[in-house]
Every structure is written in structure tokens, then in C-alpha cells.
């Protein structure tokens, strides 16, 4: 996985919960592309269309709170979300996203400093975020080596497979 990305922002508010990211009634779907068609539809029915070309999602506090459903980060990943930046994350969502290979970074002050449509570049290793549109940069919480390793393998399963095969 590329540890540096660029993309346009779509911004949401605080406490974006997993029922809003992917309602419970879709949990019987197994194809991630099918899940993706319903990502965040209760906040913005056009979201899957808008995210198609690849976006960086920015949230406020407690992003991903609620259910442990991994289908929530999966749906985001398969709509075209390249990474999620937020003031803070709910812990299960945070782990799930990393485990399926969707980068998530906690960055204080991010939600006030960017708007939908801004172009950002994110360096996961250095924890550096640059708002190219506004010429500003931020230092986010750096991801620990363990998490970077999982992300660069593309997820926990790939990481585990590599480690088990090494033994």
C-alpha cells in the first residue's frame, strides 16, 4: 500500500455513527460493492456517487461510534474513501478500519481547518497532513509501527498470513 495519498475532502460532523455509515438492514449483504452503494446514504444519498473518484473523509469527534459492524468501514473503502481523518474515533471502528486496510488518522483541529472540496495530501508514516488548497499543514497523531505494518500489508489478514508463513 502507498503510504502517501492525495485527494479531495468530503467533510461530516461529530459522532458519525455506524448506523448512519451503514444501516443495519444492509448487513445481510456480503458483496462489499453492494454495501458501498448504501454508504452514508441517510446523510447524503449522493455520497457513493461523489466518493467514486476517491476521496478523503474528514469527521469530527467520535467518528464511527456505535456498532462493531466491520461492514461500515468496508462500505466506505469500497465507495472510494482513501482514508478517514477525524478529531477522534470510536475504538472498534478505528481497529476495524486498520484491519481491513483503510487508513484512519486522529488529527486534532482537522475538522475546523478543512472544508469539503479542499485538496489534501496525507503522509501516513510521518503523520503529516497538508491542505494544498489553503497552503497549511498539520501534524497528526503518528500511527504506531504495528499499525503501519498492518496497513502497508493491506490489512490484518494479509499481515497475519505473511507472519505465519515466515515462521
Amino acid at each position: 500500500m502507498n503510504m502517501k495519498i492525495k485527494g479531495k475532502v468530503i467533510k461530516f460532523g461529530n459522532n458519525i455513527d455506524t448506523d448512519v455509515i451503514l444501516p443495519g438492514k444492509y448487513l445481510i449483504l456480503v458483496d462489499p460493492y453492494e454495501l458501498a452503494k448504501h454508504a452514508l446514504e441517510s446523510l447524503d444519498p449522493a455520497f457513493p456517487e461523489k466518493a467514486k473518484k476517491g476521496v478523503i473523509l474528514v469527521g469530527g469527534k467520535n467518528f464511527g461510534c456505535g456498532s462493531s459492524r466491520e461492514q461500515a468501514p468496508l462500505a466506505l473503502k469500497y465507495t472510494g474513501v482513501k482514508c478517514v481523518l477525524a478529531e477522534s474515533f470510536a475504538r472498534i471502528f478505528f481497529r476495524n478500519a486498520i484491519n481491513i486496510g483503510l487508513p484512519v488518522i486522529e488529527c486534532k483541529g482537522i475538522s475546523d481547518a478543512v472544508e469539503t472540496g479542499d485538496e489534501l495530501s496525507v503522509d501516513f508514516e510521518a503523520g503529516k497532513i497538508e491542505n494544498i488548497s489553503r497552503g497549511k499543514s498539520f501534524q497528526a497523531n503518528k500511527l504506531p509501527p504495528l499499525i503501519l505494518e498492518i496497513l502497508s500489508d493491506g490489512g490484518l489478514i494479509e499481515n497475519l498470513r505473511r507472519r505465519i508463513n515466515k515462521k
Binding site: S68, I92, N99
Partner: peptide, 18 residues
């Protein structure tokens, strides 16, 4: 504590979690 599905799979395989 709650975990996701992928993490549950990792626990199935290893019996451990960080």
C-alpha cells in the same frame, strides 16, 4: 470488549489480541 469480524478471525487463528 467488542471487536470486528477480521479481528475475530485473527483471534480464531492465534488466540491472542493486542
Amino acid at each position: 470488549t467488542g471487536i470486528g469480524s477480521t479481528e475475530a478471525a485473527a483471534v480464531f487463528a492465534t488466540g491472542k489480541i493486542w
